[in-house]
Write a protein that binds this DNA or RNA. Structure first.
Lengths: 209, 209
DNA sequence: TGCGCCAAAATTGGCACCAATTTATAGATG
DNA sequence: CATCTATAAATTGGTGCCAATTTTGGCGCA
């Protein structure tokens, strides 16, 4: 369930993550109106809490705010999605040399395990589970750069890209291909082959375009 | 003065930019306590406005929030600054091929003009003016990628890096070197030499380390 | 003189109320 | 019957107030 930040902080942050997760899961369609009163009842909190959470979501550009008219789920502009995917691919590819240079053996084993977890969910798991497993894989991959800011920035970007539950991984064939690419990445890291890793990452991310 | 976003939006955003600019200019030292009442008087606004602005600044990690104790200017951790500079260099270097590929002639002329503006401010201009000119140069450089998300992400990162007014460009020699590197970048873009551009960018950003 | 404790002042943070604006609804009119 | 209009309902956004917590200042005591 907890797709965003793992640790729980203050109450406002928990609420923010709940709403963000629900939006990404498709509970609120793009463009739909987020009434404060409805949210207040849905999440069993006070009105000011909701307002803080909505303001934060608007800052993150997950929703948009129209004065005196309320908050609406951000409608993904095609050009913007293309630019975000391009940027994400650019950063993750640029991180490839750091991953092969700085990654250790044990970290690589964890990565291989996460790739296997994703593989195991191809047939049995729900879309949500698959999406979480995919996210866990990429988080581990980026944590191997030794620079936590990279993973944090990518996480921020990913939130703004319409994700799997909203209909990205259409076919089972596409998911199988993703899994193959995961193992390609693991192999590239094991061989400390930055070029191969970069190539696999680029193909993996750009599949969505 | 307006170092951050150029256009003015709603009142809260204006207030946020004012406070952010003052923090970056060094009006509030790192670690200092931002009392809501003082800010309320300083910026002539209401208490809730201040609270929204402070919450946004905390989300951007320009300040930190301690429950029941208030907001404090973020104290730059050496490791974190190193990681942020590393990430910034990584992204801007990765953007180099896009700049030389996508950049047009007129855009390159604007870039050259901005490099000249910075050069002219070496002796006469204030630190603030120099910093603004430097920022304008890099904004133009990144806008030439054709992907506005890149410039936006870098702008976000730069806000979290202690900047010139806080004592980064110590010597005049260092500033002159920065200007030389600017012209190196212009030349590299003109020659559509991605490798030379990448090299100049990396040296330029890493000077601060 | 220095340290710990207690009361007073100040600050934060949440709650409830109310005005301004927008949206929905019903009625009048061509 | 559709459309425009006026009224009512609902939603947003702002202001003020008050409790909870923390910081400050002063006092007693070793």
């Amino acid at each position: 369930m907890e797709t965003l930040k793992p640790a729980h902080n203050d109450a406002e942050t928990d609420l923010l993550n709940q709403i963000a997760t629900d939006i990404q899961a498709g509970a609120y369609a793009p463009g739909s109106w987020l009434k404060q009163i409805e949210l207040q009842h849905r999440y069993k909190t006070s009105r000011p809490m909701i307002r803080v959470a909505l303001d934060r979501l608007a800052q993150k550009q997950l929703i948009r705010h129209e004065p005196n008219r309320g908050y609406y789920v951000y409608e993904a502009d095609d050009d913007e999605v293309r630019d975000l995917l391009d940027l994400r691919a650019m950063i993750e590819c640029a991180a490839a040399p750091r991953i092969v240079r700085h990654g250790t053996g044990p970290e690589c084993e964890i990565l291989a395990q996460l790739a296997q977890n994703f593989e195991d969910l191809i047939d049995t798991g729900s879309i949500i589970k698959q999406h979480e497993a995919n996210q866990a894989f990429h988080r581990q991959l980026l944590s191997m750069t030794g620079n936590p800011q990279i993973a944090a920035t990518i996480a921020e970007l990913r939130h703004r890209i319409p994700s799997a539950p909203a209909g990205q991984w259409k076919t089972r064939q596409r998911i199988k291909q993703s899994s193959i690419e995961h193992f390609e990445m693991v192999t590239a890291v094991r061989n400390r082959d930055a070029d191969a890793l970069e190539d696999a990452i680029r193909r993996h991310i750009m599949q969505a375009a």
